[in-house]
Design a protein around this nucleic acid. Structure first.
Lengths: 238, 238
DNA sequence: CTAATCAGAATTTGATCATATTTTCATGAC
DNA sequence: GTCATGAAAATATGATCAAATTCTGATTAG
Protein backbone atom coordinates (compact mmCIF):
# COMPACT_ATOMS: atom_id res chain seq x y z
CA UNK A 1 0.00 0.00 0.00
CA UNK A 2 1.94 3.05 1.26
CA UNK A 3 -0.19 5.11 -1.10
CA UNK A 4 1.22 8.62 -1.38
CA UNK A 5 3.71 7.80 1.37
CA UNK A 6 3.72 11.25 2.88
CA UNK A 7 5.55 10.24 6.02
CA UNK A 8 9.02 10.45 4.60
CA UNK A 9 10.52 7.88 6.99
CA UNK A 10 13.05 10.38 8.31
CA UNK A 11 16.47 8.89 8.98
CA UNK A 12 16.38 5.17 9.35
CA UNK A 13 19.67 4.33 10.98
CA UNK A 14 20.21 0.63 11.62
CA UNK A 15 18.13 -0.13 8.59
CA UNK A 16 17.53 -3.37 6.66
CA UNK A 17 13.91 -3.44 7.76
CA UNK A 18 11.62 -0.93 6.09
CA UNK A 19 8.89 -0.69 8.72
CA UNK A 20 11.34 -0.68 11.59
CA UNK A 21 10.18 2.69 12.83
CA UNK A 22 6.56 2.51 14.04
CA UNK A 23 4.13 4.89 12.40
CA UNK A 24 3.23 6.56 15.66
CA UNK A 25 6.87 7.43 16.19
CA UNK A 26 7.17 8.83 12.70
CA UNK A 27 4.11 10.97 13.21
CA UNK A 28 5.46 12.02 16.59
CA UNK A 29 8.83 13.01 15.16
CA UNK A 30 7.25 14.90 12.29
CA UNK A 31 4.84 16.82 14.47
CA UNK A 32 7.51 17.44 17.07
CA UNK A 33 9.81 19.05 14.55
CA UNK A 34 6.95 21.08 13.17
CA UNK A 35 6.37 22.56 16.63
CA UNK A 36 10.03 22.82 17.57
CA UNK A 37 11.05 24.69 14.45
CA UNK A 38 8.01 26.88 14.20
CA UNK A 39 6.25 25.37 11.22
CA UNK A 40 3.12 25.66 13.31
CA UNK A 41 2.30 29.08 14.71
CA UNK A 42 1.36 29.65 18.37
CA UNK A 43 -2.40 29.35 18.69
CA UNK A 44 -2.78 27.23 15.59
CA UNK A 45 -5.23 24.35 15.84
CA UNK A 46 -4.07 20.77 15.39
CA UNK A 47 -6.77 18.32 14.36
CA UNK A 48 -6.67 14.57 14.06
CA UNK A 49 -8.43 14.69 10.72
CA UNK A 50 -5.96 17.22 9.40
CA UNK A 51 -3.04 15.04 10.40
CA UNK A 52 -4.63 12.00 8.77
CA UNK A 53 -4.69 13.89 5.50
CA UNK A 54 -1.28 15.42 6.01
CA UNK A 55 0.58 12.29 7.01
CA UNK A 56 -1.50 9.55 5.40
CA UNK A 57 -1.37 7.60 8.65
CA UNK A 58 -4.27 5.99 10.47
CA UNK A 59 -6.11 7.43 13.40
CA UNK A 60 -4.65 5.48 16.30
CA UNK A 61 -0.96 6.35 15.81
CA UNK A 62 -1.90 9.99 15.31
CA UNK A 63 -3.82 10.01 18.54
CA UNK A 64 -0.83 8.53 20.30
CA UNK A 65 1.49 11.15 18.89
CA UNK A 66 -0.83 13.94 19.95
CA UNK A 67 -1.14 12.56 23.46
CA UNK A 68 2.58 12.37 23.74
CA UNK A 69 3.19 15.87 22.47
CA UNK A 70 0.50 17.16 24.79
CA UNK A 71 2.26 15.65 27.81
CA UNK A 72 5.48 17.19 26.67
CA UNK A 73 3.99 20.66 26.45
CA UNK A 74 4.27 20.93 22.68
CA UNK A 75 0.49 20.93 22.32
CA UNK A 76 -2.29 21.99 24.62
CA UNK A 77 -5.86 20.92 25.24
CA UNK A 78 -8.13 23.83 24.74
CA UNK A 79 -11.41 22.97 26.37
CA UNK A 80 -13.68 20.91 24.22
CA UNK A 81 -11.32 18.36 22.76
CA UNK A 82 -9.56 20.99 20.75
CA UNK A 83 -5.82 20.83 20.56
CA UNK A 84 -3.69 23.85 19.70
CA UNK A 85 -0.07 24.97 19.70
CA UNK A 86 0.17 26.84 23.02
CA UNK A 87 0.69 30.58 23.14
CA UNK A 88 3.32 31.83 25.55
CA UNK A 89 2.43 34.21 28.34
CA UNK A 90 4.97 36.35 30.16
CA UNK A 91 4.54 34.21 33.28
CA UNK A 92 5.23 31.11 31.24
CA UNK A 93 8.37 32.50 29.63
CA UNK A 94 9.70 33.46 33.07
CA UNK A 95 9.30 29.87 34.21
CA UNK A 96 10.90 28.60 31.04
CA UNK A 97 13.88 30.90 31.49
CA UNK A 98 14.26 29.69 35.06
CA UNK A 99 14.03 26.04 34.03
CA UNK A 100 16.40 26.35 31.13
CA UNK A 101 18.95 28.21 33.21
CA UNK A 102 19.00 25.66 35.98
CA UNK A 103 18.61 22.50 33.95
CA UNK A 104 20.82 23.43 31.04
CA UNK A 105 23.67 24.59 33.21
CA UNK A 106 23.54 21.37 35.19
CA UNK A 107 23.52 19.36 31.98
CA UNK A 108 26.53 21.39 30.87
CA UNK A 109 28.38 20.45 34.06
CA UNK A 110 27.67 16.78 33.51
CA UNK A 111 28.73 17.06 29.89
CA UNK A 112 32.02 18.71 30.81
CA UNK A 113 32.87 15.77 33.05
CA UNK A 114 32.13 13.16 30.44
CA UNK A 115 33.05 14.73 27.13
CA UNK A 116 35.46 13.03 24.71
CA UNK A 117 37.51 14.38 21.83
CA UNK A 118 35.03 12.87 19.36
CA UNK A 119 32.15 14.70 21.04
CA UNK A 120 34.04 17.99 20.88
CA UNK A 121 34.72 17.51 17.19
CA UNK A 122 31.02 16.82 16.58
CA UNK A 123 30.04 19.93 18.54
CA UNK A 124 32.50 22.09 16.61
CA UNK A 125 31.11 20.83 13.34
CA UNK A 126 27.56 21.65 14.40
CA UNK A 127 28.63 25.06 15.65
CA UNK A 128 30.24 25.90 12.33
CA UNK A 129 26.90 25.15 10.71
CA UNK A 130 25.23 27.46 13.21
CA UNK A 131 27.65 30.20 12.18
CA UNK A 132 27.00 29.52 8.54
CA UNK A 133 23.24 29.73 9.03
CA UNK A 134 23.63 33.06 10.84
CA UNK A 135 25.73 34.62 8.10
CA UNK A 136 23.38 33.25 5.44
CA UNK A 137 20.44 34.69 7.38
CA UNK A 138 18.77 31.31 7.20
CA UNK A 139 16.42 31.29 10.18
CA UNK A 140 15.21 27.75 9.70
CA UNK A 141 18.72 26.33 9.48
CA UNK A 142 19.79 28.35 12.51
CA UNK A 143 16.95 26.96 14.60
CA UNK A 144 17.75 23.40 13.61
CA UNK A 145 21.50 23.61 14.02
CA UNK A 146 21.32 25.55 17.24
CA UNK A 147 19.01 22.90 18.66
CA UNK A 148 21.34 20.21 17.37
CA UNK A 149 24.21 21.78 19.32
CA UNK A 150 22.31 21.82 22.58
CA UNK A 151 20.85 18.36 21.97
CA UNK A 152 24.31 16.95 21.41
CA UNK A 153 25.45 18.45 24.67
CA UNK A 154 22.48 16.86 26.44
CA UNK A 155 23.35 13.51 24.92
CA UNK A 156 26.93 13.81 26.18
CA UNK A 157 25.71 14.68 29.67
CA UNK A 158 23.93 11.32 29.80
CA UNK A 159 21.22 12.40 32.22
CA UNK A 160 17.96 11.23 30.67
CA UNK A 161 15.62 12.87 33.16
CA UNK A 162 17.19 16.31 32.86
CA UNK A 163 17.24 15.86 29.10
CA UNK A 164 13.51 15.18 29.08
CA UNK A 165 12.90 18.41 30.97
CA UNK A 166 15.17 20.37 28.65
CA UNK A 167 13.46 18.96 25.57
CA UNK A 168 10.07 19.82 26.96
CA UNK A 169 11.25 23.38 27.53
CA UNK A 170 12.44 23.62 23.92
CA UNK A 171 9.08 22.43 22.67
CA UNK A 172 7.34 25.11 24.67
CA UNK A 173 9.32 28.10 23.43
CA UNK A 174 10.05 26.78 19.93
CA UNK A 175 7.06 28.27 18.13
CA UNK A 176 7.60 31.70 19.70
CA UNK A 177 11.32 31.56 18.96
CA UNK A 178 10.48 31.12 15.32
CA UNK A 179 8.15 34.11 15.34
CA UNK A 180 10.81 36.27 16.98
CA UNK A 181 13.57 35.16 14.61
CA UNK A 182 11.31 35.69 11.65
CA UNK A 183 11.00 39.35 12.72
CA UNK A 184 14.51 40.11 13.85
CA UNK A 185 16.56 38.03 11.47
CA UNK A 186 19.61 36.07 12.56
CA UNK A 187 22.00 38.94 13.27
CA UNK A 188 21.29 39.58 16.95
CA UNK A 189 21.11 35.94 17.92
CA UNK A 190 23.36 34.70 20.71
CA UNK A 191 26.19 32.32 20.11
CA UNK A 192 28.26 31.61 23.17
CA UNK A 193 29.10 28.20 21.84
CA UNK A 194 32.76 29.10 21.29
CA UNK A 195 33.21 30.00 24.95
CA UNK A 196 31.44 26.80 25.95
CA UNK A 197 33.64 24.75 23.65
CA UNK A 198 36.79 26.23 25.15
CA UNK A 199 35.54 25.39 28.62
CA UNK A 200 34.65 21.87 27.51
CA UNK A 201 38.12 21.33 26.11
CA UNK A 202 39.55 22.38 29.46
CA UNK A 203 37.00 20.10 31.15
CA UNK A 204 36.02 23.08 33.28
CA UNK A 205 32.51 22.24 34.41
CA UNK A 206 31.79 25.57 36.05
CA UNK A 207 32.94 27.62 33.05
CA UNK A 208 30.92 25.43 30.69
CA UNK A 209 27.83 25.89 32.81
CA UNK A 210 28.35 29.66 32.90
CA UNK A 211 28.79 29.88 29.14
CA UNK A 212 25.68 27.87 28.45
CA UNK A 213 23.68 29.82 30.99
CA UNK A 214 24.71 33.02 29.27
CA UNK A 215 23.72 31.60 25.88
CA UNK A 216 20.37 30.47 27.20
CA UNK A 217 19.52 33.70 28.96
CA UNK A 218 20.42 35.84 25.96
CA UNK A 219 18.22 33.82 23.64
CA UNK A 220 15.30 33.58 26.01
CA UNK A 221 15.38 37.28 26.84
CA UNK A 222 14.78 38.08 23.18
CA UNK A 223 11.56 36.11 23.32
CA UNK A 224 10.62 37.72 26.58
CA UNK A 225 11.09 41.22 25.21
CA UNK A 226 9.13 40.41 22.09
CA UNK A 227 6.38 39.06 24.29
CA UNK A 228 6.32 42.23 26.40
CA UNK A 229 6.38 44.35 23.28
CA UNK A 230 3.51 42.42 21.84
CA UNK A 231 3.68 43.49 18.21
CA UNK A 232 5.64 40.42 17.15
CA UNK A 233 2.78 38.16 18.12
CA UNK A 234 -0.07 40.33 16.90
CA UNK A 235 -0.85 38.08 13.96
CA UNK A 236 -0.81 34.78 15.81
CA UNK A 237 -4.12 33.12 16.26
CA UNK A 238 -5.84 33.67 19.58
CA UNK B 1 -21.42 -4.16 26.42
CA UNK B 2 -20.29 -2.65 29.67
CA UNK B 3 -20.04 -6.24 30.83
CA UNK B 4 -18.09 -6.27 34.05
CA UNK B 5 -17.62 -2.52 33.87
CA UNK B 6 -14.36 -2.59 35.75
CA UNK B 7 -13.49 1.03 35.23
CA UNK B 8 -15.59 2.21 38.09
CA UNK B 9 -16.65 5.39 36.29
CA UNK B 10 -16.16 7.39 39.45
CA UNK B 11 -19.46 8.80 40.55
CA UNK B 12 -22.30 8.41 38.14
CA UNK B 13 -25.33 7.83 40.18
CA UNK B 14 -27.68 7.30 37.27
CA UNK B 15 -27.52 10.92 36.22
CA UNK B 16 -27.29 12.45 32.80
CA UNK B 17 -23.48 12.67 32.61
CA UNK B 18 -22.68 9.11 31.68
CA UNK B 19 -19.63 9.34 29.41
CA UNK B 20 -18.53 12.78 30.48
CA UNK B 21 -15.00 11.69 31.32
CA UNK B 22 -13.33 10.03 28.32
CA UNK B 23 -12.16 6.47 28.84
CA UNK B 24 -8.58 7.29 27.95
CA UNK B 25 -8.51 9.83 30.76
CA UNK B 26 -9.97 7.35 33.21
CA UNK B 27 -7.37 4.78 32.26
CA UNK B 28 -4.68 7.43 32.48
CA UNK B 29 -5.75 8.54 35.94
CA UNK B 30 -6.03 4.99 37.19
CA UNK B 31 -2.64 3.96 35.87
CA UNK B 32 -1.07 7.20 37.04
CA UNK B 33 -2.22 6.67 40.60
CA UNK B 34 -1.07 3.07 40.47
CA UNK B 35 2.44 4.25 39.62
CA UNK B 36 2.43 7.27 41.89
CA UNK B 37 1.36 5.38 44.98
CA UNK B 38 3.42 2.30 44.35
CA UNK B 39 0.75 -0.21 43.42
CA UNK B 40 3.12 -1.20 40.64
CA UNK B 41 6.63 -2.16 41.64
CA UNK B 42 9.73 -0.76 39.93
CA UNK B 43 10.65 -3.03 37.04
CA UNK B 44 7.17 -4.45 36.72
CA UNK B 45 5.94 -4.94 33.15
CA UNK B 46 2.87 -3.10 31.90
CA UNK B 47 1.14 -4.73 28.95
CA UNK B 48 -1.69 -3.51 26.81
CA UNK B 49 -3.43 -6.85 27.04
CA UNK B 50 -3.16 -6.86 30.79
CA UNK B 51 -4.73 -3.42 31.02
CA UNK B 52 -7.55 -4.44 28.71
CA UNK B 53 -8.43 -7.21 31.12
CA UNK B 54 -7.83 -5.09 34.19
CA UNK B 55 -9.82 -2.06 33.09
CA UNK B 56 -12.29 -3.50 30.61
CA UNK B 57 -11.47 -0.65 28.24
CA UNK B 58 -10.68 -0.93 24.56
CA UNK B 59 -7.25 -0.92 23.06
CA UNK B 60 -7.01 2.62 21.70
CA UNK B 61 -7.61 4.52 24.94
CA UNK B 62 -5.17 2.26 26.74
CA UNK B 63 -2.48 2.93 24.17
CA UNK B 64 -3.06 6.64 24.59
CA UNK B 65 -2.76 6.42 28.35
CA UNK B 66 0.46 4.41 28.11
CA UNK B 67 1.95 6.87 25.63
CA UNK B 68 1.14 9.73 27.90
CA UNK B 69 2.55 8.11 31.01
CA UNK B 70 5.67 7.20 29.08
CA UNK B 71 6.27 10.83 28.14
CA UNK B 72 5.79 11.80 31.74
CA UNK B 73 8.40 9.38 32.95
CA UNK B 74 5.97 7.14 34.79
CA UNK B 75 6.60 4.29 32.37
CA UNK B 76 9.55 3.41 30.22
CA UNK B 77 10.07 1.70 26.88
CA UNK B 78 12.28 -1.26 27.34
CA UNK B 79 13.52 -2.15 23.89
CA UNK B 80 11.20 -4.44 22.03
CA UNK B 81 7.86 -2.76 22.58
CA UNK B 82 7.95 -3.73 26.20
CA UNK B 83 6.82 -1.17 28.72
CA UNK B 84 7.84 -1.30 32.37
CA UNK B 85 7.75 0.79 35.52
CA UNK B 86 11.25 2.33 35.53
CA UNK B 87 13.80 1.37 38.14
CA UNK B 88 15.71 4.22 39.74
CA UNK B 89 19.45 4.41 39.49
CA UNK B 90 21.59 6.49 41.82
CA UNK B 91 22.33 8.91 38.99
CA UNK B 92 18.64 9.29 38.36
CA UNK B 93 17.77 9.97 41.98
CA UNK B 94 20.45 12.64 42.12
CA UNK B 95 18.86 14.40 39.19
CA UNK B 96 15.42 14.02 40.74
CA UNK B 97 16.64 15.51 44.01
CA UNK B 98 18.15 18.44 42.13
CA UNK B 99 14.97 18.99 40.12
CA UNK B 100 12.66 18.73 43.07
CA UNK B 101 14.77 21.09 45.14
CA UNK B 102 14.88 23.79 42.51
CA UNK B 103 11.39 23.45 41.10
CA UNK B 104 9.54 22.84 44.32
CA UNK B 105 11.17 25.73 46.11
CA UNK B 106 10.33 28.06 43.27
CA UNK B 107 6.74 26.83 43.27
CA UNK B 108 6.68 27.48 47.01
CA UNK B 109 7.79 31.07 46.44
CA UNK B 110 5.02 31.60 43.90
CA UNK B 111 2.51 29.99 46.21
CA UNK B 112 3.51 32.25 49.10
CA UNK B 113 2.81 35.31 46.99
CA UNK B 114 -0.62 34.17 45.90
CA UNK B 115 -2.00 32.19 48.80
CA UNK B 116 -5.37 33.00 50.36
CA UNK B 117 -6.90 32.14 53.72
CA UNK B 118 -9.05 29.47 52.08
CA UNK B 119 -5.98 27.83 50.60
CA UNK B 120 -4.24 27.80 53.97
CA UNK B 121 -7.25 26.18 55.58
CA UNK B 122 -7.29 23.50 52.89
CA UNK B 123 -3.56 22.85 53.35
CA UNK B 124 -3.96 22.57 57.12
CA UNK B 125 -6.75 20.07 56.68
CA UNK B 126 -4.65 17.94 54.36
CA UNK B 127 -1.68 18.18 56.69
CA UNK B 128 -3.73 16.95 59.61
CA UNK B 129 -4.58 13.90 57.52
CA UNK B 130 -0.88 13.42 56.82
CA UNK B 131 -0.26 13.43 60.58
CA UNK B 132 -3.05 11.00 61.14
CA UNK B 133 -1.71 8.62 58.52
CA UNK B 134 1.75 8.75 60.12
CA UNK B 135 0.46 7.96 63.61
CA UNK B 136 -1.74 5.19 62.19
CA UNK B 137 1.26 3.81 60.31
CA UNK B 138 -0.84 3.79 57.16
CA UNK B 139 1.74 4.01 54.38
CA UNK B 140 -0.76 4.20 51.55
CA UNK B 141 -2.71 7.03 53.14
CA UNK B 142 0.52 8.88 53.94
CA UNK B 143 1.65 8.72 50.35
CA UNK B 144 -1.68 9.99 49.06
CA UNK B 145 -2.13 12.77 51.58
CA UNK B 146 1.47 13.90 51.39
CA UNK B 147 1.14 14.16 47.63
CA UNK B 148 -2.15 15.99 48.06
CA UNK B 149 -0.39 18.59 50.22
CA UNK B 150 2.29 19.27 47.67
CA UNK B 151 -0.17 19.17 44.78
CA UNK B 152 -2.34 21.76 46.48
CA UNK B 153 0.67 23.99 46.91
CA UNK B 154 1.45 23.61 43.20
CA UNK B 155 -2.10 24.54 42.33
CA UNK B 156 -1.87 27.69 44.44
CA UNK B 157 1.40 28.65 42.77
CA UNK B 158 -0.42 28.76 39.45
CA UNK B 159 2.62 27.96 37.33
CA UNK B 160 1.50 25.17 35.00
CA UNK B 161 4.88 24.48 33.44
CA UNK B 162 6.70 24.09 36.74
CA UNK B 163 3.81 21.99 37.99
CA UNK B 164 4.18 19.63 35.04
CA UNK B 165 7.84 19.17 35.85
CA UNK B 166 7.10 18.59 39.52
CA UNK B 167 4.41 16.03 38.70
CA UNK B 168 6.75 14.21 36.37
CA UNK B 169 9.33 14.05 39.14
CA UNK B 170 6.76 12.57 41.53
CA UNK B 171 5.86 9.91 39.00
CA UNK B 172 9.49 8.95 38.69
CA UNK B 173 10.26 8.43 42.36
CA UNK B 174 6.77 7.27 43.42
CA UNK B 175 7.28 3.53 43.01
CA UNK B 176 10.60 3.60 44.88
CA UNK B 177 9.12 5.77 47.60
CA UNK B 178 6.55 3.12 48.20
CA UNK B 179 9.16 0.40 48.46
CA UNK B 180 11.16 2.45 50.98
CA UNK B 181 8.13 3.33 53.09
CA UNK B 182 7.01 -0.27 53.04
CA UNK B 183 10.32 -1.18 54.66
CA UNK B 184 10.80 1.66 57.08
CA UNK B 185 7.25 2.41 58.10
CA UNK B 186 5.91 5.92 58.54
CA UNK B 187 7.85 6.94 61.65
CA UNK B 188 10.96 8.46 60.14
CA UNK B 189 9.16 10.30 57.39
CA UNK B 190 9.69 14.03 57.05
CA UNK B 191 6.96 16.53 57.75
CA UNK B 192 8.10 20.12 57.51
CA UNK B 193 4.63 21.16 56.52
CA UNK B 194 4.02 23.01 59.78
CA UNK B 195 7.05 25.24 59.19
CA UNK B 196 5.92 25.83 55.63
CA UNK B 197 2.41 26.71 56.77
CA UNK B 198 3.75 29.28 59.23
CA UNK B 199 5.82 30.85 56.48
CA UNK B 200 2.85 30.86 54.13
CA UNK B 201 0.70 32.61 56.72
CA UNK B 202 3.38 35.28 57.02
CA UNK B 203 3.56 35.41 53.23
CA UNK B 204 7.31 34.91 53.56
CA UNK B 205 8.31 33.48 50.18
CA UNK B 206 11.90 32.74 51.13
CA UNK B 207 11.00 30.94 54.35
CA UNK B 208 8.34 28.90 52.57
CA UNK B 209 10.83 27.88 49.91
CA UNK B 210 13.37 26.90 52.55
CA UNK B 211 10.87 24.81 54.47
CA UNK B 212 9.71 22.97 51.38
CA UNK B 213 13.27 22.41 50.22
CA UNK B 214 14.07 20.88 53.57
CA UNK B 215 11.00 18.64 53.36
CA UNK B 216 11.89 17.54 49.86
CA UNK B 217 15.54 16.83 50.59
CA UNK B 218 14.77 14.81 53.70
CA UNK B 219 12.28 12.61 51.85
CA UNK B 220 14.42 12.13 48.78
CA UNK B 221 17.53 11.31 50.80
CA UNK B 222 15.73 8.35 52.33
CA UNK B 223 15.19 6.93 48.86
CA UNK B 224 18.77 7.68 47.95
CA UNK B 225 20.16 5.87 50.95
CA UNK B 226 17.92 2.88 50.36
CA UNK B 227 19.11 2.85 46.78
CA UNK B 228 22.76 2.91 47.86
CA UNK B 229 22.11 0.24 50.44
CA UNK B 230 20.43 -1.90 47.86
CA UNK B 231 18.64 -4.41 50.07
CA UNK B 232 15.34 -2.56 49.91
CA UNK B 233 15.11 -3.11 46.18
CA UNK B 234 16.45 -6.63 46.10
CA UNK B 235 13.07 -8.16 45.34
CA UNK B 236 12.03 -5.76 42.60
CA UNK B 237 12.02 -7.11 39.10
CA UNK B 238 15.02 -6.32 36.97
C1' DC C 1 -36.16 47.55 5.47
C1' DT C 2 -31.97 46.08 7.74
C1' DA C 3 -29.63 43.66 11.11
C1' DA C 4 -29.25 40.71 15.01
C1' DT C 5 -30.38 36.55 17.33
C1' DC C 6 -31.78 31.98 18.00
C1' DA C 7 -33.42 27.13 16.76
C1' DG C 8 -32.49 23.26 14.35
C1' DA C 9 -30.19 20.77 10.61
C1' DA C 10 -25.91 19.43 8.53
C1' DT C 11 -21.20 18.82 8.62
C1' DT C 12 -17.10 18.19 10.90
C1' DT C 13 -14.34 16.19 14.48
C1' DG C 14 -13.29 13.23 18.26
C1' DA C 15 -13.83 8.71 20.91
C1' DT C 16 -14.10 3.97 20.94
C1' DC C 17 -14.00 -0.58 19.28
C1' DA C 18 -13.40 -4.69 16.38
C1' DT C 19 -10.37 -6.57 13.27
C1' DA C 20 -6.48 -7.41 10.31
C1' DT C 21 -1.51 -7.37 10.05
C1' DT C 22 3.04 -7.66 11.73
C1' DT C 23 6.52 -8.83 15.11
C1' DT C 24 8.41 -11.28 18.87
C1' DC C 25 9.22 -15.04 21.84
C1' DA C 26 9.11 -19.70 23.03
C1' DT C 27 9.00 -24.35 21.92
C1' DG C 28 10.48 -28.25 19.69
C1' DA C 29 12.46 -30.80 15.66
C1' DC C 30 16.59 -31.75 13.19
C1' DG D 1 23.21 -25.57 18.61
C1' DT D 2 20.34 -23.78 14.83
C1' DC D 3 16.35 -23.14 12.42
C1' DA D 4 11.44 -23.57 11.75
C1' DT D 5 6.84 -23.11 13.48
C1' DG D 6 3.10 -21.44 16.24
C1' DA D 7 1.11 -18.75 19.88
C1' DA D 8 0.82 -14.30 21.96
C1' DA D 9 1.21 -9.48 21.96
C1' DA D 10 1.67 -5.14 19.77
C1' DT D 11 0.86 -2.11 15.72
C1' DA D 12 -2.23 -0.05 12.59
C1' DT D 13 -6.64 0.58 9.97
C1' DG D 14 -11.31 1.62 9.14
C1' DA D 15 -15.94 1.51 10.76
C1' DT D 16 -19.20 3.27 13.93
C1' DC D 17 -21.08 6.25 17.31
C1' DA D 18 -21.42 10.60 19.81
C1' DA D 19 -20.60 15.37 20.43
C1' DA D 20 -19.80 19.95 18.91
C1' DT D 21 -19.38 23.55 15.85
C1' DT D 22 -21.07 25.78 11.92
C1' DC D 23 -24.48 26.98 8.70
C1' DT D 24 -28.99 28.28 7.36
C1' DG D 25 -33.07 30.56 7.62
C1' DA D 26 -36.71 32.63 9.92
C1' DT D 27 -38.45 35.70 13.28
C1' DT D 28 -38.18 39.96 15.55
C1' DA D 29 -36.37 44.37 17.26
C1' DG D 30 -34.72 48.79 15.85
Amino acid sequence: MEGTGKLGQGFDHSDENATRVPVHQQVYAQLRDAVLFGELAPGQAVTIQGLIERTGAGMTPIREAIRRLTSEGALEFRGNRRVVVPMLTVDAIDDLIFLRETVESRLAEHAAEKITATDIAALEKIDSQVDEAITRGDVSAYLRQNFAFHAKLYAVANAPILMDVANSVWLRFGPSMRVVCGRMGTQNLPDNHKTALDALKAKDAQATADAMREDVVQGMEQIREALLDGTAFSDTID
